[in-house]
Design a binder for these strands. Structure first.
Lengths: 251, 251
DNA sequence: AGGGTTATTCTCAGCTTGAGTTATTCTTAG
DNA sequence: CTAAGAATAACTCAAGCTGAGAATAACCCT
């Protein structure tokens, strides 16, 4: 047994089997009223033909968050202002020795939240990138431990909706309370009481601020014009917008 | 620009400058009514004489969590059942290119919560390991980005007390409600209403379960014998035990 | 013009919270 | 031995928040 000092001082890590560090991005968006995740189809082994998260090696002088944004941008063709509206945060790291059959690869996963984006095929250099609905995920063959990473990302997203204004990242610059409610219902996967949600959203300080304007028309199936809102300046929601407790998740 | 498949398939990462992956452990405990963190004093450059988190390289066939536990055990001399009572969880990863002057080192930080432990000098192989009160931290010179890592760990601990039974990890097997309250007050850094805390702890399902026994004596300055409790089987607290909102943290 | 749909506002009971109080048990100082 | 001080545990009460349901009004479509 040696301690850190001796280890760092007396040992050349280059003598170790090489390791590599990648970033993988769990990019979530809402399309067609479904939560969708960005996947690319692998062309080469291992896991050729399997679907995988966008990601790749961190470059020598590159910061982790920068690498995650770069990988996301490469696959989606997104840049400039639209890219700035996408929220990135570090999710977790994965480093089981056998997670990649070629060598020891540590992956630092990032979570990205984007408003409704176009199919990524146009303008990107990824031959086979696509948004996939979460409901279609169980039947897909996923590479490496990416299924686990996606599950972790979804759980993070669900809980972050509770106590941060993250939901506003899934909608456009201006939105209605119903738009916001649709985000919560989609991510949490069950319907909410429209009246109570409305009351709650307006009562939490800094969640949304009114623009004074309304939608041009009512909804496609009727109803009055809805008021438009912008994201407020809160970074945490107090009191939080809690999802209904499910007994199973507690124990 | 190449995508992940081409990159992984066509590029030998060994041609890159070598990178290394370490784990660092933010181990928190409560001693003398203060939140304390485990630090070791570096003997060799860089940052010789500075204090640092226990940590070291992840071994070739070693899982991340295992590496974190190993590093913690090496510094504290802890093993067996006492070590099993320590809670470990992954905190975050740090990989800024210039965070270590020698080479590109990615660090995956873990957070550990332990009940009152002895000074780590006895039985460990770390010449200069010690528990340091958080209040003494600002005047210490810390190596690398370890100050930032500790801050992230503390914030994580504070918020995990709210919605998990983590506080029971800072006390012994059996404890009184007052013991538990002391944990919350110490970690959150401000006093709580004893009566309300008592009511709340007993009303959250699965947080604690009574043992039927009481303490042998009353408190050192008087008061009746307190009932003893054990940790319950809840993994999440519903409803959560929220810390009083501080306006500054919200925006 | 009328039926169905939706945004927004109300009502109301039940629950939780913050703050304060009370009864009781125990330690310590005198 | 006794009184003062301290802490546990239980209780009260007002205020705020939640879930459920309903009312109102604006708007789409046929």
């Amino acid at each position: 047994m040696v301690n850190e000092q001796e280890f760092l001082a007396g040992y050349d890590p280059r003598a170790y089997p090489a390791v590599a560090v990648t970033v993988d991005v769990v990019a979530l968006t809402i399309r067609d009223n479904e939560l969708q995740v960005l996947l690319i189809q692998r062309a080469a082994p291992p896991f050729a033909g399997f679907w995988a998260l966008p990601g790749g090696f961190v470059r020598p002088e590159e910061d982790l968050g920068v690498a995650a944004r770069r990988e996301f941008a490469e696959e989606t063709g997104l840049g400039g202002e639209p890219l700035r509206r996408v929220h990135f945060e570090q999710l977790a790291s994965y480093g089981t020795p056998e997670r990649d059959p070629r060598m020891r690869i540590f992956s630092i996963a990032y979570l990205a939240f984007a408003p409704d984006l176009p199919e990524p095929t146009a303008g990107s250099d990824a031959g086979d990138a696509q948004w996939l609905a979460l409901t279609a995920l169980p039947t897909r063959e996923l590479a490496f431990d990416h299924r686990k990473i996606i599950e972790d990302g979804i759980e993070r997203a669900r809980s972050k909706l509770e106590y941060t204004p993250l939901a506003t990242r899934f909608v456009g610059e201006e939105f209605t309370i119903a738009d916001l409610r649709a985000v919560y219902e989609t991510v949490w996967g069950h319907p909410l009481h429209a009246g109570n949600f409305h009351r709650k959203v307006l009562s939490v300080p800094g969640l949304v601020e009114g623009t004074g304007a309304t939608t041009e028309h009512g909804g496609p199936r009727g109803g009055p014009r809805a008021r438009l809102y912008r994201a407020g300046d809160a970074r945490l929601l107090h009191p939080a917008l809690l999802r209904p407790a499910r007994e199973e998740t507690v124990r």
